[in-house]
Simulated assay, not measured.
Amino acid sequence: MINIEEIQSILAHRYPFLLVDRVIAVDLEKNIIECLKNITANEPQFTGHFPDHPVMPGVLLIESMAQAAGILGYQMKVRQEEDNSIYYFAGADKVRFRRPVVPGDQVILRAEFVAMKRNIWKFSCEGQVDGKIACSAEITCARKEL
């Protein structure tokens, strides 16, 4: 498991935009990661989305999947050599939202490495709540050396 302090050493994001609370599992043989995002009513987006019916914005679910993918990319690169890079969200394809994500939900974010060409990495991602897929996407990240 990777805790929030270690996640902050990998990702440049901070409150309110750090959207991964914990890494549950990393399998570097299969290049898969599972992360946890707790959805709480105290998050700032719920004051406007929507005041009487809070729903996690889809764009933030996509960002949370991208952050999980970025952590996986970092872990894969560190296995090979010391990594002094940042991973930028570069794109999302085949995005699907299958159910609303609301305060009280725990989203299990799963990212699987698909391919890399030069410094562009592609991942297959999904977010599950209570064992059911809430969202999915193919996420592209760009790796930039610092």
Rank of each mutant, 00 (worst) to 15 (best):
E5Y: 08
Q8L: 13
Q8R: 15
A12D: 14
H13E: 05
R14D: 09
R14V: 04
P16D: 12
L18C: 04
L18E: 08
D21W: 06
R22W: 05
V23P: 00
V23S: 02
A25C: 09
D27H: 10
L28M: 10
E29F: 02
E29C: 08
E29S: 09
K30C: 01
I33G: 08
E34G: 00
K37G: 03
K37Q: 13
I39K: 00
I39T: 06
A41E: 09
P44A: 04
P44G: 01
Q45E: 15
T47Y: 11
F50R: 00
D52S: 08
P54S: 04
V55M: 01
L60P: 04
E63Q: 08
E63M: 07
M65T: 07
M65D: 08
M65C: 05
A66W: 01
Q67N: 12
A68F: 09
A68H: 10
G70Q: 03
G73M: 15
M76I: 15
M76L: 14
R79W: 01
R79P: 03
Q80W: 08
E81V: 14
I86V: 15
I86P: 12
A90T: 10
A90H: 03
A92S: 04
D93I: 05
V95L: 10
R96W: 08
R96P: 09
R96F: 09
F97Q: 05
R98Y: 12
R99Y: 04
R99G: 06
P100H: 03
V101Y: 04
V102P: 01
P103D: 13
P103N: 11
P103E: 10
G104T: 09
G104H: 00
Q106L: 03
V107D: 04
I108R: 15
E112Q: 04
F113V: 07
F113A: 13
A115M: 11
A115R: 11
R118E: 11
R118Y: 07
